[in-house]
């Protein structure tokens, strides 16, 4: 088990990766990626039971599905640093002939990815299907998924949320990144979500809240609790309260950096706030 310090160091390095990846190609989505850096680090390094290597079927291991595919920078960085593919390959993000497409895909055969995502609202259904496959295969491992809060505006989510409760899909932990931001502004301004907790509970889910979704220890505690709530005939939802752009002060608490890359000067400021820990790619 890694120490909190080790996980924090990895998170800092992941932040550097994110900033450098989007800066290099002057495109990509740093805001949501930074907000979820701690979550991904905790998930892949402490929470999930993973096998060595990668195969599509993923039998006898926990699986993760990213529904809000635009936060691919954090996903790629954490996958690479967990050993799914060479860290140097982060250099190819969004470039022609790369396996690291703007949004994650299986099409180029990047290890670690099991479904394409980017067009929003589809990942919950896919995660439920994978959870049902686990049950049929008598595989007791869990399915994890991540969804944006703005993404819940897509109706397919609510079809899936209704299905999972009605059919007791209790080997699923679906996390919602509650950062309160989307492209056109705050979620309150664009299309108010109301109480996400009340909605999930009304649909029959068990809900766990992680108040500080940018704190490794809080995430570990909350996700460990979520795990203990699986297998009880209800799907589990984790509400992860994060700050978009976390770890880079001028990117925090705003939707401005949803899909915008830093310039040279901004990159330098961001990197200075996150000194190299494990080594840049």
């Amino acid at each position: 088990m890694a120490s909190t310090q080790q996980l924090n160091d990895l998170t800092t390095q992941v932040r550097r990766d994110i900033l450098r990846m989007v800066h290099k190609v002057n495109s990509g989505h740093p805001g949501g990626s930074l907000g979820c850096a701690e979550f991904f680090v905790a998930l892949y390094n402490e929470i999930m039971e993973r096998k060595e290597g990668f195969d599509m079927d993923g039998k006898n291991e926990d699986l993760f599905f990213l529904s809000n595919g635009h936060i691919s920078p954090v996903y790629y960085s954490v996958l690479a640093r967990a050993g799914y593919f060479p860290v140097d390959e982060l250099n190819t993000f969004r470039l022609i002939d790369s396996r690291l497409q703007g949004h994650p895909t299986t099409h180029e055969g990047l290890p670690g990815i099991r479904i394409a995502s980017g067009s929003l609202g589809q990942g919950m259904s896919v995660a439920i299907g994978a959870a049902e496959a686990k049950k049929l295969n008598k595989d007791n491992h869990l399915i994890y998924s991540l969804h944006g809060d703005g993404e819940l505006q897509e109706g397919q989510n609510w079809e899936a949320i209704m299905y999972a409760a009605a059919n007791k899909v209790d080997n699923l932990i679906a996390t919602v990144d509650l950062n309160g931001q989307q492209i056109d502004g705050s979620t309150d301004q664009v299309l108010n979500l109301g109480s996400v907790r009340a909605k999930f509970e009304a649909f029959g889910w068990t809900v766990v809240e992680i108040e500080n979704g940018n704190n490794i220890e809080a995430i570990l505690e909350g996700m460990t609790k979520a795990k203990t709530l699986t297998g009880q005939e209800k799907p589990v939802c984790v509400l992860l309260k994060t700050v978009m752009g976390n770890g880079v002060d001028f990117m925090m608490h705003t939707h401005a950096w949803h899909g915008k890359a830093p310039n040279d000067e901004q990159l330098e400021i961001g990197l200075n706030q996150n000194p190299e820990t494990l080594g840049d790619y």
């Binding site: 079927d57 479904i115 439920i128 299907g129 496959a133 595989d139």
Partner: peptide, 11 residues
């Protein structure tokens, strides 16, 4: 979407 997910696991 569920059908796509069910293929992961060999269905």
């Amino acid at each position: 979407g569920m059908a796509a997910g069910l293929t992961i696991g060999g269905k």
